[in-house]
Nucleic acid binder design. Structure first.
Lengths: 116, 116, 116, 116
DNA sequence: GTGGTCTAGACCACC
DNA sequence: GTGGTCTAGACCACA
C-alpha cells in the first residue's frame, strides 16, 4: 500500500478499512487482521495501525475482544454511512454552497452532473 | 476571528481575504492592511499573516510596493474567479457527486440549501 | 455470557460464581462444572476458567478433589460475606461517599435505587 | 510524581489534571504546560502526556491552538462534573447497589456515613 | 498469540 | 517554540 504524504497514514488506513467494510470485504462480527498482521501487510508500524483501530473503535465501527483481536461491529455499515451523511450535511454542504455563491455557480450543475 | 484547528491559520486567512475581494470589500489597487495591522485585527502573529500575503502575491491576487504595503491587483477578482471555477468544475464537483451517490444523498439538497 | 472489556474475563467469571454461591445456585459441597464444561457454557477458553478456579481455591471458596473436580467449600458463603462486607465498609464506602460529596450527589439516590 | 503500577500512566495524569482544574489550579482559557514541559515535570515521555491531552480534548475539557499549546475549556469544570455524575449514576450506582443487596448491607449506612 | 502501554528518538508543519 | 505523526523496540496482562 502506498500513502499520500499530505495525510496521516493512520487516517488513510482508517479510510481504507471503512471502504472495505462498506464494500463487504469484512463482514459483521468477522475478525480483522491483528495490528501486527495489518502493519506487516501495508508496511507500517503496528503502533500506527493501533491508532487506526482505536479511532474505529471510538466510532463504533469495530470492537475488541481481549487477547483475541478486533471484530467488525454488527451495525458497522450503518454507523459509517450515518456518520458520513451527517458530516456531509453539516460541514461540507454549507462550505460548498458558500463557495458556489461566491463563484457564481448555479446549483443546477449538480442535477446535470448527476444524470451522467 | 475564530479559527478551525484542522486547517492552517494562514490558509484560513488566505481564504477569507479572497472571499472579501470577491465580495468587494477590497477594491482593485486599494491598499490592504499591513501584516501588523491585520495580525492585530484577527488576533494572530504577524508572521502568520506574512505567510498569507506571500501566497496571495504568488497567486497574483495582491502585489507589493516596497515600503508602502500590499495592494489588491487590478484583475484580482478575475484571477480568483478563473482559477476557482475551473478547479471547482473539474476537480471538486466530480468527487462531491461521487460521494453523494455513495451516501445516497439527493442533488436537490443543493437547491434547497441555496434558497436559505 | 457477555463480558465487559475493561475487566479481565477471569475476574468477571470469578465475580459471577461468587454471586451464584451467595444466591444459593451452588450449595455447599456441591460439585461445580469442570473448567471444560464451564468454558463451553460461557463461551470462553478453559484456560481462562482454570484461572478463575485457582483464584477461588486460593480464597477458600472452592476446593478440589483430585481427578473428581471442584466443589463448593462448606463455609463458602460465610467466607465471601465476611471478606466482602469488611472490605466494603472499610474501603469502598468511604471512597464512594467522598466522590458523591464532590459530585454533589445526595445519599437518597441509594434508597431510591434500592426500591427498584 | 509517582505512579500506581496498576493503572496506565496517561490515565493517572488525566485524573490529576481533571482534579487540578476542579480545584482551580488551572483557570478557564488558561494555557496548560506543553506536552514536553509536563512530561519533564512528572518524569514521563512527552508522547504519554500527548495521549492524556488527546483524551482530555476528546472530552471537551481542554482545546488546542495550533503551534501555541493546549488551553483549558471555558466550561471545563461543568464538563468534568457532568461526565462524572453521569458515569456514577449509570455505571457505579447499579453495581454498588447490586453488591450491597448480595452482602445484605442496608442503604441506611450511606445516610449514616454522610453525616460524619 | 493478542491488545495495550510506554520510551526514546526522529521529522514535519505551523506559529 | 508548539502540536502532531511515525518508527523501533520493549514489556505486560490476558486468552
Amino acid at each position: 500500500m502506498d500513502f499520500d504524504n499530505n495525510k496521516p497514514i493512520y487516517i488513510q488506513i482508517y479510510d481504507s478499512i471503512r471502504d472495505r467494510i462498506l464494500a463487504g470485504d469484512f463482514a459483521p462480527d468477522e475478525r480483522i487482521p491483528s495490528v501486527r498482521e495489518y502493519g506487516a501487510m501495508v508496511g507500517v508500524n503496528p503502533n500506527t495501525v493501533m491508532r487506526t483501530y482505536e479511532k474505529l473503535t471510538a466510532d463504533g465501527v469495530i470492537y475488541t475482544k481481549r487477547g483475541m483481536g478486533y471484530y467488525v461491529s454488527p451495525n458497522a455499515k450503518e454507523v459509517i454511512m450515518e456518520n458520513d451523511r451527517k458530516s456531509f450535511m453539516e460541514n461540507e454542504l454549507p462550505t460548498i454552497v458558500n463557495r458556489m455563491k461566491l463563484l457564481g455557480i448555479d446549483p443546477s450543475v449538480f442535477n446535470d452532473y448527476f444524470e451522467k
